[in-house]
Design a protein around this nucleic acid. Structure first.
Ligand SMILES: [Mn+2]
Ligand SMILES: [Mn+2]
Ligand SMILES: [Mn+2]
Ligand SMILES: [Mn+2]
Lengths: 219, 219
DNA sequence: ATAAGGATTTAGATTAATCTAAAAAATATA
DNA sequence: TATATTTTTTAGATTAATCTAAATCCTTAT
């Protein structure tokens, strides 16, 4: 089954929204994720349903079929491999890769993807700590916890960031938080969920709950 | 001025056709080069003319403006850099790169192109011996001659191939002709323009004029 | 149980890129 | 030069992807 650029874009969005929340994904959420309007989404849902990529019942949201999930995972695989390439080989920083990788991911060439993977040394995670699906769509899942969910005095290492926006990533650079950093929860403010953490045993920083839910830790 | 994928495709085609023959390019030739129909070309010509990328007089063919030529050269720059990447880094052979590079060339990211160039060591020629325009669109021209135009007993090195089709390139592989090979003209058959050449001082091969016009030599 | 409000779909357009068939213009031939 | 041939353009459609506005359906609070 051959997919257009847009069809790939929507399938990936549906997958990502379903990862975050539930298996059944709402039209509005897809519109938000693809930066299109709900009416455009409905049109595309019919196309994807015809191609058996999604299970679609009018008014009740969608879920990916096995084939649709596989297609989404292949696009994500390509995105993340290209992100690794841009960072490791072309010296991009982690806040510069998203836009370009979102174009590169649509280039079709199984040979190129296989060779790129090999050339990069079969990386398991991308620059944001997200796992890279293998050629069969299998994903390595690591148990992980947002900083916001950790107890006071517990420790761990940053393994991923949930938000990939340049603004967020650049702020992390500024405060010295990176993939691999060791952190310890010093204090949690019950009122607003903000936290005080110790980074690499030397720097104390304070962050809002908004940040704390977007930084993932492995203990 | 921002160009669509298709506009880039046509500008590049116009440039390539004008390189081969004359400065004024015919609608039919553009259609052949882009694998579209003449009617589609006419539509696009009006668009490119509106965008000041070409000089267009109805019924009399087109030529690129300075801006159009620059745009074409930037697309060609990207194509050839990606071809080098695929061959040098991902172990593609020279007959496997065309299709993928023709997609990659449309990815927009000045930073990526600059870094890719640097990463590849600022290559001056692509895997087919074609020159890579620099970031200003300047191209290194080398004086070169097709085998078909050489005299008997003259010698030289293969520096480029004109035809990039997989069939042609694979045949060259088979007979041991590659960029850098030393050749000597042993005999020219007047009747049909075919030639007998000596490759790397050890192998005698016979080729038709069709082949001989597509292999470029520097003496 | 109804009515309001929100989510979703439908209706109807628009834009880009393409096509076929017919008309028009340029060029080649007699 | 007049006619035939070829090239190019125009006319009219089609398909994919998008949009706005209106209609419809679902859910949730009276
Ligand atoms: Mn994308
Ligand atoms: Mn990522
Ligand atoms: Mn192209
Ligand atoms: Mn080339």
């Amino acid at each position: 089954m051959t997919l257009t650029y847009s069809e790939e874009k929507y399938l990936k969005a549906i997958f990502e929204v379903s990862e975050a929340g539930n298996r059944s994904v709402a039209t509005n959420d897809i519109a938000a994720a693809t930066k299109t309007k709900p009416a455009s989404v409905t049109d595309m849902l019919r196309k994807l349903s015809d191609k058996q990529m999604i299970e679609y019942r009018k008014y009740y949201g969608v879920s990916l079929t096995e084939e649709g999930k596989k297609a989404a995972l292949m696009t994500i695989r390509k995105q993340r491999l290209w992100e690794v390439f841009l960072v490791e080989k072309l010296r991009f920083s982690w806040d510069e890769v998203l836009e370009v990788a979102n174009e590169l991911e649509h280039i079709q060439s199984p040979l190129m993807v296989r060779r790129l993977d090999e050339y990069l040394g079969f990386p398991k995670f991308d620059p944001h700590g997200d796992p890279i699906p293998d050629e069969f769509g299998d994903v390595k899942v690591r148990p992980r916890l947002a900083i916001a969910e950790m107890d006071v005095d517990s420790t761990g290492q940053v393994v991923a960031v949930k938000d990939n926006s340049p603004a967020f990533l650049r702020y992390l650079d500024k405060i010295g938080v990176y993939i691999g950093a060791r952190i310890k929860i010093l204090e949690k403010v019950e009122f607003d969920g903000s936290v005080e953490i110790l980074v690499d045993n030397k720097k104390t920083i304070f962050m809002s709950k908004d940040m704390a839910v977007n930084i993932m830790i492995m203990t």
